[in-house]
């Protein structure tokens, strides 16, 4: 575990190529092309059980979080302060028995704080690499949009490539690797909004939303004495997550589904409601997320309903609204809803 070797097994179910789930986990679970639904179901149950004990009244948020984890993506949690963004990230981190690092982003945070730095070791008379905060299975990036763009980009580069290059040496990150970043809406003071290219690297964006009044009441009661996080114990480990990610990649996505996803992103590029449509990476992420969601639902094949459920979280944060859309005060999430209504579900009637 946690090696930096290159012995990765590339799974090529769709040719779209998720990366590598290295190590023994992959080999142990590989069956005859079918996903290990039992494993996925078991892990998902335990994870969600643990998380809902802390994050109350938000089953969809928890479900999307687990979906992103299983799909091997990164998660952006965007909302106003105080609704439990960090709590969600920490809960997930605490539920997995893996290395967890938390980075509090501030304007003066340096890129090397994130990636690591080479320090000259006087004794050994050579440079030694001291890994940064990114070297962990679960990285919680708090208030990511408070950091300078330079630092943000250092993080985001490693998110996509799952490796860090410092002083010409490339260090591969551990698997699983999930970044959960929180950010405040860009209107808030003292923030550096994430550039489109960097938002694109997050598989999904969720927002917590205010809790229901009853849930808030419970929250006041329980959180008064002690944090429920303290009571949380890990319910799974990094290796299991690796196996799950691999199993998810085995979920069948029929040509019709792939066509549907392509139709959706193509339509997003041509619609007048958007200035910038979805990228090919967005299509890739949508497919991966849909697979994970299908697996969570206990299916070993994706159906359009999975795509529709995830289209909002996966696509909305990458799109740029046109000025008309902004004038009409419509969010990109609403535009995605419109797209779903317009694009026929394949196989369309001939």
């Amino acid at each position: 575990m946690g090696t930096t070797t290159e012995d990765s097994v590339t799974t090529t179910d769709t040719g779209l190529g998720t990366t590598a789930s290295p190590g023994a986990g992959a080999g142990a679970t590989s069956t005859t092309g079918a996903a290990d639904l039992d494993l996925i179901h078991d892990v998902a149950e335990r994870l969600m059980g643990a998380m809902t004990s802390v994050i109350e009244g938000k089953p969809e948020v928890v479900r999307t979080t687990v979906t992103v984890l299983f799909a091997g993506g990164h998660l952006l949690i965007e909302d106003v302060p105080g609704v439990g963004k960090t709590m969600l990230a920490k809960t997930l981190a605490r539920s997995i028995d893996a290395t967890v690092r938390r980075i509090q982003f501030t304007p003066d945070l340096l890129p090397s704080d994130v990636t690591g730095v080479s320090i000259f070791n006087q004794d050994a008379r050579r440079f030694e690499f001291r890994p940064g905060a990114i070297f962990a299975n679960v990285v919680v990036g708090d208030e990511i949009n408070r950091a300078s763009p330079k630092t943000q980009s250092a993080l985001l580069e490693s998110m996509e490539e799952r490796q860090v290059t410092v002083d010409g040496t490339t260090y591969t990150l551990q698997a699983p690797f999930i970044v959960m970043a929180t950010q405040n809406p860009i209107e808030m003071e003292g923030t550096y909004p994430l550039p489109e290219a960097q938002r694109d690297r997050f598989m999904a964006r969720i927002s917590m939303g205010y809790p229901a009044p009853s849930a808030e009441l419970d929250l006041l009661e329980t959180h008064g004495s002690s944090s429920p996080l303290d009571a949380l114990t890990p319910v799974t480990d990094a290796e299991t997550i690796n196996r799950v990610v691999h199993a998810v990649s085995q979920v069948h996505a029929s040509p019709a589904i792939r066509q549907y996803i392509v139709d959706l992103v193509t339509r997003s590029r041509s619609t007048t409601a958007l200035r910038l449509g979805a990228s090919p990476r967005a299509a890739l992420h949508l497919l991966r997320a849909s697979r994970a969601f299908a697996a969570l639902e206990g299916r070993d094949h994706v159906i359009p309903d999975d795509v529709q459920v995830l289209a909002g979280p996966v696509l909305a944060h990458r799109l740029m609204p046109s000025s008309e859309t902004q004038l009409a005060r419509r969010t990109t999430a609403e535009v995605v809803t419109d797209l779903l209504r317009q694009v026929p579900v394949p196989p369309a009637a001939r």
Partner: peptide, 8 residues
Amino acid sequence: PEGVTLRQ
């Protein structure tokens, strides 16, 4: 309608 899945 277009854009409706089987289940809907």
